[in-house]
Design a protein around this nucleic acid. Structure first.
Lengths: 200, 200
DNA sequence: GATAAAATGTAGTGATCGCTATATAAATCC
DNA sequence: GGATTTATATAGCGATCACTACATTTTATC
């Protein structure tokens, strides 16, 4: 058996690719939620046995945390991606929602947002706390961004965007497709614009 | 031991109040989600043993179905309540969202909407199908209502309202309070009004 | 009160949960 | 190559999952 860990610089040598394992776990947690994916199934899908699993990740929640971080650091960070393209505040916000409409629909059994819905209804308080922390960080970034131009109404406007995204994630998990989500994203984008224009 | 079933006319006599049991189960499912509430806990909370449980409800999913129906037949049917008060279409829709903002925040450990989030991430396909059926019925009622005046845009507008409600339910389960939810509900109500005025 | 019917309590089914103790195999170091 | 360290596989931990067979008690009927 050969050590195949080529990506991570830190960490001990393992006979399996840790990053690849996190990727697989991310997909499983995303598809069915934290509680519905068991350690036995993770071991099978990852091709490792329980001791290796716990040596590498500490616990099921530990792997979930790594999956969450990987998720948030990739293409799922739609607000950062929208921000990177520049434009006005309203453009960035609407672009965020449109990216959600493209990212959230079901693909290969995966739908919605892992951070928003991955630990929904989970009985594990650790998993819930991990997801909550990342949710709060996400909405805080949006709030701070809005506050640069609208400090008074940043909370309310950020709440509106956060609720729209949570609703889009839930709707995608309930089967809504990209077209319908895009229509709603545009509506919410217009609403955001109009709220800005109303009293700005 | 005395037969205490006074409410239901049909059904066999039981030593416990079936309606009261459904109410208790509804609260438990609502608070933590379908999968996180076990039959053992239900039996304890309901004060009955497994055989009585299965004689009365058939299965855990059977009890969940009764809980869902009871939930949807009560004060949680916010769209029907909003419709009953009359007014314009926009008024009815905004009233629906404002009722959600009052109903969804956490009270006694219960938050959000049981239909929208009670079976979220559940591994039980029966429970998921039951909730999905009720979700579709709910959004269909809103769509049909909108279609009486806006047949062309009924689907899109109903999707927008459905997503807003799903987002509000998720946000409430994530800890958002009535005040913040109300602010967002008003924003969404204004957005709905403006969409109507835009091209009506 | 005897009999038939029905609901209940006791106990336990096999399966799965997250997780780990122990032992073996592999890789590293000198 | 021998010794030490590290990661692996085997097997199983106690707990909980939804659910049920069986015996008993309670209820209803006559």
């Amino acid at each position: 058996m050969v050590a195949t860990e080529t990506s991570g610089v830190r960490g001990r040598r393992r006979s399996f690719d840790v990053d690849e394992a996190v990727e697989t776990a991310m997909r499983l947690f995303h598809a069915r939620g934290y509680d519905a994916v068991g350690v036995a199934e993770l071991g099978t899908e990852l091709g490792i046995k329980p001791p290796s699993f716990y040596a590498a990740f500490g616990s099921k929640a530990g792997l979930f945390e790594r999956a969450l971080r990987r998720y948030a650091a990739g293409e799922a960070n739609i607000f950062a991606r929208a921000q990177a393209e520049g434009g006005s505040m309203a453009e960035v916000i609407e672009r965020t929602l449109l990216l959600a409409a493209r990212l959230y629909p079901e693909r290969d059994g995966v739908a919605g947002c892992l951070v928003l819905d991955g630990a929904r209804n989970s009985a594990d308080p650790v998993a819930c706390a991990l997801a909550e922390t990342m949710r709060k960080a996400g909405v805080a970034a949006i709030r701070d961004f809005i506050a640069t131009e609208q400090p008074e109404r940043a909370d309310a406007l950020a709440d509106f965007i956060a609720i729209t995204m949570k609703g889009m994630s839930a709707a995608a998990r309930d089967g809504m497709g990209e077209d319908a989500l895009t229509v709603v994203a545009r509506m919410a984008g217009r609403a955001f614009r109009r709220e800005l224009a109303a009293e700005g």
